[in-house]
């Protein structure tokens, strides 16, 4: 089942993109983690009093924001800052859409599937390499976070807390990887696949955001991915969010399996 050549090919396809996003996340995390501890908590509490800011942060952090939430709120920001999320999701969508829709779009799938490989072999090799490259990008984010805190002479969070937050972040990353590759399997145009995944991500955020203003919208919150990503609660409670991680991991695994099934049965047309 394991084909070294396919693994090498997938690594070649993902390496440059992963390196670029990893460096970008490292730099952004350094900046955010450096700036936030410097922020005067009084100014921060004033900002949180602004309804729009409070709702926006509530949507991102997955919990209602109250005043004087303390250091937990500050420490959670580097994990949910919109720029950070854009980088993380951007990386995943870029990689997940490479196969099959990207390969069909470029026409390179003819060369790949003209070789003696099973479609599921090609699919899962790419899925595994995409998922693994997420670990590299997020690890660079953690390193950037620690560098930023150290430059700001702030105390780093305990390793246990960091591990929990990292696992939760990786879980949402993995779920988007699965959904991305599933949507990519259904599409023949990479642009459409990227658009569909980004719509899904933005919709998730919008559901959470609207639910903050309009209570009936809370009914659809379980369908939003960001509902299962709540770093603030994790950092404050110091408990492993097993339920959230299970939901996100299940979405990733099920999407991946359905994607493989679709790719294995579909027609491949490049012209």
């Amino acid at each position: 089942m394991i084909n070294q050549g396919l693994i090498q090919k997938s690594i070649r396809d993902c390496a440059l993109v992963t390196l670029g996003f990893a460096v970008l996340l490292l730099v952004v995390e350094i900046l955010i983690s450096f700036v936030i501890p410097e922020m005067n908590s009084e100014i921060f509490n004033m900002m949180v009093k602004l309804p729009f800011v409070r709702k926006m942060m509530g949507a991102l952090l997955g919990v209602p924001i109250t005043e004087n939430m303390g250091t937990g709120l500050l420490l959670a920001i580097p994990w949910v800052h919109p720029v950070v999320l854009m980088i993380v999701f951007g990386h995943q969508v870029t990689l997940a859409s490479q196969l099959p829709s990207g390969e069909i779009d470029r026409g390179t799938i003819d060369l790949l599937l003209g070789l003696p490989v099973k479609r599921v072999q090609v699919f899962f090799t790419h899925f595994i390499i995409c998922s693994a490259s997420g670990l590299i990008v997020l690890s660079c984010g953690v390193v950037g976070h620690l560098i930023g805190l150290s430059l700001a002479k702030a105390d780093p969070p305990p390793p246990k807390i960091l591990m929990i937050a990292f696992t939760n972040a990786y879980a949402i990353y993995f779920s988007i990887c699965g959904l991305g590759i599933l949507i990519s399997s259904l599409s023949e145009r990479r642009g459409r696949a990227i658009g569909a995944v980004m719509t899904l991500v933005v919709s998730s955020f919008m559901i959470n955001f609207i639910a903050e203003y309009w209570e009936p919208a809370a009914i659809v919150k379980p369908f939003s991915l960001l509902t299962y990503y709540r770093p603030l609660i994790t950092l404050q409670s110091e408990t492993f969010p097993l339920g959230d991680i299970t939901v996100l991991a299940s979405i990733g695994i099920v999407s991946g399996l359905v994607g493989a099934w679709v790719f294995n049965r579909r027609d491949i047309q490049t012209t």
Binding site: G107, D110, P116
Partner: peptide, 23 residues
Amino acid sequence: PGDLRIYRRWTPRIALNLVSKIR
């Protein structure tokens, strides 16, 4: 195929190496 599309960063040597491993 008639209009063969190959990965843009590959060279013939890389292609031969990778196809050898895949095959």
